[in-house]
Simulated scan of single mutants.
Amino acid sequence: MTAISVHATAIAINYHGVLLVGPSGSGKSDLALRLIDRGAVLVSDDIVYVEQSEGKPLLRAAPNIEGRIELRGVGIIEVLHTKYAAMRMVAEMAPSYERIPPENLSTDIAGYSVPLVKIAALEASAPLKVEYALRSIVDADIWPMPLSHIRPNESPAT
């Protein structure tokens, strides 16, 4: 499978990749910076390549932006980074979201159905919410599923 590029930011928490998606100015880089401050590692900011590796989606940076993150009002800085991470979850920057979301929420990225959480990126608790959502996915051993393996009317989590 050829890599596709996604306008997003990607970080790795304990080697598990999280793709932060949303429009420009929605807080992706800000949330990534706060997660990095808590121990996450940058994969890529602004453009993320998603490719298949051993049947799983892999997140990686374009070589020209590797290790760099844009901080609005500050500029582009270099941070600790990793070349790639296996994608486990998508966090969508959302101005509002359901108090208790439906179970098994997912989104389609690069031919995979990927677990999804909606986050108000600029809330103080946003980094913790991303970490807890990822932990629940990892603890349940949920992985992105190729869309070609999902039959009509079948939930990705079944």
Score class of each variant (00 low, 15 high):
96 S>Q: 04
67 G>Y: 08
44 S>R: 11
144 P>W: 07
114 V>Q: 01
106 S>F: 13
83 K>Q: 14
104 N>A: 06
128 L>V: 10
142 I>G: 02
69 I>Q: 04
44 S>G: 13
101 P>Q: 07
119 I>M: 09
40 A>F: 02
68 R>W: 05
104 N>R: 04
90 V>Y: 02
74 V>R: 14
115 P>L: 06
47 I>S: 11
94 A>S: 12
43 V>T: 12
144 P>S: 04
69 I>E: 08
142 I>K: 08
41 V>L: 14
136 S>A: 13
143 W>T: 14
91 A>I: 09
104 N>D: 06
116 L>S: 03
61 A>F: 06
139 D>N: 14
62 A>D: 15
119 I>P: 08
76 I>G: 12
97 Y>W: 11
92 E>Q: 14
73 G>W: 05
114 V>H: 04
72 R>L: 09
67 G>A: 10
118 K>W: 00
38 R>S: 11
107 T>A: 04
111 G>Y: 12
130 V>E: 00
65 I>S: 11
131 E>C: 13
138 V>Y: 01
129 K>D: 00
39 G>I: 02
72 R>K: 14
57 P>H: 04
53 S>C: 15
49 Y>T: 06
121 A>Y: 00
141 D>A: 13
57 P>E: 01
96 S>G: 05
137 I>S: 02
110 A>L: 08
101 P>N: 07
48 V>T: 11
92 E>D: 03
109 I>E: 00
63 P>N: 04
53 S>I: 10
127 P>M: 02
128 L>Y: 09
44 S>Q: 15
121 A>H: 00
71 L>A: 15
102 P>S: 06
120 A>L: 10
136 S>P: 02
73 G>D: 04
65 I>L: 15
97 Y>Q: 05
66 E>H: 07
91 A>M: 08
94 A>T: 11
70 E>K: 08
